[in-house]
Design a protein around this nucleic acid. Structure first.
Lengths: 224, 224
DNA sequence: ACAAAAGTGTTTTCTATACACCCATGG
DNA sequence: CCATGGGTGTATAGAAAACACTTTTGT
């Protein structure tokens, strides 16, 4: 009954910087799809958990280490990999691109951020995987205050607002947005302000993880 | 790079009858977990799609044929199967228990419906899989008019209401519930009434699949 | 006539949305 | 004093929730 199906994992890692949403890709060094860009990932080792496999591959191939990767979907169509029947369990995660420096281009690895609007051709069915991950991100950000994963620890409200605008692809009313987030009570206003830049300095805020977890445990939901 | 991980699929099939939510289980004929109850499922064949595998196993083991099975989650912890590293892609589906007669108990198979509140001990991590599937069902039923999959073609409003009450585990205001569903405009009232039973006869309704699909395509959502 | 379930409207409360002006700073 | 972005409140509309009596049938 044993099947020679191979199991791989792939990671869709989103980053955000300067108003742009990006995805972390690696350039394949070997066939199939030699030299093409692809999602970081690889085969799961025997007796290795899926979560471990995806974190491990991500570190090996890109140098990026993420604690939270969420399972997205399992792609199992025969034919999605020219080498044979290879199943891929896809994960998605969020990170601040400047939190890690990518592995330098080498014989083994070449990792790079690509803006969502300027993705290269992708190996396998990775374009479809990314599309699904993006839909999940859009959906998820409306009912869970992610986005803190994508911003600096201290951020201005306008940063948060622009992040939402970018991901959702539509304008947001500044006043209502702020009201909702403040009502959620998971942001702590700091005594600091932004300094550089023109215009009035903005108060900096910080995400209060503890209060968010409490909220989540009580089953309280929000929606932007 | 190839791994000897084996890939299986499991199906969590919910049924509903006489106010009770049930799950379709099979009794294992061989080790491991011989004689214990488990979810229908089995190994994916080489070059077989996951969807095909899960439908096929379901028919083989229970006689039940479902057109719509939705991918739930992939369970891949090493140790979840005593035979070695076996990954399971879990699916969930809905059906009217009386739409199929289960395969008779035989040497190869023994399928049976179990009420959710009276599940037996389960093989592998199947209890956890069922819990996740149930949460998904509860979530899903609030924003998609499933439930038609679980009811007879013709049903009274009180049937629909009781289904929701059962799955959500809480009371529902009859008037508001009816208002919302009627506003959705996916139910056709028939010229028929229930006959047997005490009390005033109820009008029978039918789900209008076409109008629901139109709604869905337009991106219109509802929430009970 | 009574028991049992079906059917029905209105009021209130809350939440979402729309909308425009003043404030603080740097140059 | 002007340009730039930050910060704030209110009014309206729509949706959700709360709530109880009448109708139809079988016995």
């Amino acid at each position: 009954m044993s099947t020679p199906i191979r199991v791989s994992v792939d990671a869709v890692v989103f980053g955000y910087e300067a108003g742009k949403l990006s995805i972390l890709l690696i350039q394949r060094k070997y066939d199939p799809f030699k030299d093409q860009w692809a999602l970081p990932g690889g085969f799961v080792l025997e007796n290795e958990s899926l979560e471990n496999a995806v974190s491990r591959e991500l570190v090996e191939e890109t140098g990026v280490s993420i604690n939270y990767l969420e399972q997205l979907y399992t792609f199992g169509n025969p034919g999605r990999d020219p080498r044979g029947h290879v199943l891929s369990v896809a994960y998605f995660g969020l990170i601040r691109p400047d939190a890690f420096s990518l592995l330098a281009s080498s014989d083994a690895s070449n990792a790079q951020w690509f803006e969502m609007e300027a993705l290269p051709d992708l190996a396998f069915d990775h374009k479809i995987i990314i599309e699904q991950a993006f839909l999940r991100l859009q959906d998820k950000i409306t009912y869970e205050p992610l986005g803190f994963e994508l911003l600096d620890t201290k951020f201005a409200f306008s940063d948060l607002e622009q992040l939402y605008t970018t991901i959702l692809g539509r304008a947001i009313d500044r006043r209502n947005f702020r009201k909702k987030f403040i009502a959620l009570n998971v942001l702590d206003e700091l005594d600091e302000k932004t300094s550089k830049g023109s215009g009035r300095p903005a108060s900096l805020f910080q995400f209060n993880e503890k209060r968010y977890k409490d909220l989540k445990n009580k089953g309280i939901v929000f929606e932007i």
